[in-house]
Amino acid sequence: MEVFLQLEAILESPLTFPTLECFHIAGLAVGIGTIAIVDFRLLGLGLRDQKISTLAANLTPLTLLGLCVTFLSAGGLFYSDPDLYYLNHSFQLKMVLLLGALMFQFMVRQPRALDDPPEGSARWVGAVSLLLWASIVFCGIFIGFTVVPE
């Protein structure tokens, strides 16, 4: 009981929401940012001296760490006012795209990247991945600008 009261107090502090937002953004900069480095490499941009598989394998821990921070902070943001989110069309679209992006990342992109595809042959994989993650960020911002139906 004591614990719940303390949790309640933390959630009600005016600093909690913006702090969680900062963690959310820092987490996505690391999580999506490291995914993007491999995607750019698949497109033939950025770290061209490194093998695709080397990058994909070495950046995975940072990707997972970043995504964990993003998801954990997202849980807190959602919990602050669930009604504001799950009825919000931008949020609903974001969740669908997120599911798609995660499936694409772990079922298509990562296996392809670890397989060292011939230079330029997997450009579409990098492009699809970048577009999916960018669209998720877009939906995230639009949550705040979308009117929730009564």
Partner: peptide, 14 residues
């Protein structure tokens, strides 16, 4: 602005 942070912020971190 946020897409730029997401896709390019990792470059600085790395």
């Amino acid at each position: 602005h946020l897409v730029a942070i997401a896709l390019f912020g990792g470059l600085i971190v790395i």
